[in-house]
Design a protein around this nucleic acid. Structure first.
Length: 419
RNA sequence: GUGGGUGUAGCUCAGUUGGCAGAGCACCGGGUUGUGGCCCCGGUUGUCGAGGGUUCAAGCCCCUUCACUCACCCCA
């Protein structure tokens, strides 16, 4: 047997209905907020991700699906969507017609990590980005939109965490004082954090090891080191969130793993997913557009982990099955032929009709009809054909009535549509 | 990449000290002519994850390997 590759998954028909429901809810909501859908390639030049996500990050260093194309170009299956959207924004000069662009996209991403609950090597994200606005009101609006998405999907157990990472002016100073502290306490740190001290010092703040926690008790807080602009910005985000009635907590340990983030970062967490508690995350990335060769435009965006969201939403156990409107039990070759024709006639008018092509006993066809969940069963056999009238049985009321064959399937359509 | 757990029927799982591979559910058929659900009767379903070893004999013991899963790292 040939099986799917590790960390990949099939989304079976029963699940697809749920996925479409989530997709539609998100798309409708985002469109109401003025976002427009963009579709970008699944593959890009490796350089795009290396430059935007950061050469030193785990994603770029060891988690990307990268290969050499026949013309010796290095290509990568996208590990996230933001870089591609920024590339498209620049490449098509979208800022020329309208600098403020609100874009969203939905699709698969690829990261070669060890799979676990809520984490796949091909995973799906709903991604939204706003270009060209640096107002803190937009930060709050984006978080509000995200929290509305969760309430529309009836996901209760979620918490918004926010933080600020400062900007190119104030972050270096903070990083420096943090580095000095890490240097002085380096013997207390776990091996991972000794490594992190170099690669990503902010991460040490988030370590769970006892020694590291102690070493970090008097660590400087990013929020205290923000420059006045960043501090005002962060204050304004909080004020606006309160205005909008969005509950949140300030999480000083919320340090995102991608290099491009500046100022506001946020995450939506849930306790329903085990260790993978983040179901959405994002933040501001004011320097990225320029760094990738575009104009100096600010931007903010987020990604929703679709697989994780689907898992949480499915816990609310909605019923997404679509039973046929009518099941046709056809007995004998002549009835089978007619039934097959009706099924097609009904389908083009949007009425789902199902039949049993094996011409089995009425009893077994009734069993199948029952299992299909169809409300009506149309029974057609030699007798009915001889009498020019089929039996229409209502499976819930158990009532049966005779329907002249000459009026089928038009009659059936009106009867089913009426009820 | 590191560590733990689990692999037996379509699904959920039993399987004793090594001795003919099992149950429930599902599926199929029947319970007097062509009427579903509930009930009753009967039937089908297996590379015991794969490969090797020990043994008269392996689902069970040993080695190797793969997959799934949870956690770490990291992240949506």
């Amino acid at each position: 047997m040939i099986t799917k590759i590790r960390g990949f998954k099939d989304i079976l028909p029963g699940e697809v209905a749920l996925w479409q429901h989530i997709e539609k809810t998100a798309a409708d909501l985002f469109e109401d907020f003025g976002f427009r859908q963009i579709r970008v390639p699944l593959m890009e030049r490796t350089e795009l991700f290396a430059r935007s996500i950061g050469e030193e990050t785990d994603i770029v260093e060891k988690e990307m699906y990268t290969f050499v194309d026949r013309n010796e170009e290095l290509l990568t299956l996208r590990p996230e969507a933001t870089a591609s959207i920024v590339r498209a924004y620049i490449e098509h000069k979208l800022y020329n017609t309208e600098p403020v662009q609100k874009l969203y996209t939905i699709g698969p991403m690829f990261r070669r990590e060890r799979p676990q609950k809520g984490r796949y090597r091909q995973f799906y994200q709903i991604d939204a980005e706003v270009f060209g606005v640096d107002s803190p009101l937009v930060d709050a609006q984006v978080i509000f939109m995200l929290s509305t998405l969760f309430s529309r999907l009836k996901v209760a157990d979620i918490h918004a965490h926010i933080n600020s990472l400062g900007c190119a002016r104030c972050r270096p100073g903070f990083k420096q004082s943090l580095l000095e502290l890490l240097e002085s306490k380096s013997e207390m740190l776990c091996p991972d954090c000794k490594r992190r001290s170099r690669a990503n010092p902010l991460r040490v703040l988030d370590c769970k090891a006892e020694g590291c926690r102690q070493a970090m008790t008097d660590a400087p807080s990013i929020v205290d080191h923000l420059c006045s602009d960043c501090r005002e910005h962060f204050q304004a985000v909080q004020k606006s969130l309160r205005d909008l009635g969005v509950e949140f907590v300030i999480d000083k340990r919320l340090v995102r793993g991608l290099d491009y983030y500046t100022r506001t970062t946020f995450e939506i967490q849930t306790t329903l997913l085990g260790a993978q508690n983040a179901v959405a995350g994002g933040g501001r990335y004011d320097g990225l557009v320029k760094a990738l060769g575009g104009p100096d435009q600010p931007a903010i965006g987020f990604a929703v982990g679709f697989d994780r969201l689907a898992e949480v939403v499915s816990l609310q156990a909605a019923d997404f099955v679509h039973p046929p409107h009518v099941f046709i039990a056809a007995l004998g070759p002549e009835a089978q032929v007619r039934a097959a024709r009706w099924v097609c006639n009904l389908a083009v008018d949007g009425i789902r009709a199902e039949m049993d092509f094996s011409d089995r006993s009425l009893k077994s066809q009734m069993k199948r009809a029952d299992k299909s969940g169809a409300e009506y069963v149309l029974i057609v056999g030699e007798q009915e054909i001889a009498q020019n009238a089929a039996m229409l049985r209502n499976m819930t009321t158990h009532g049966q009535e005779s329907v002249p064959l000459s009026q089928l399937p038009e009659n059936l359509k009106s009867m089913i549509i009426l009820r």
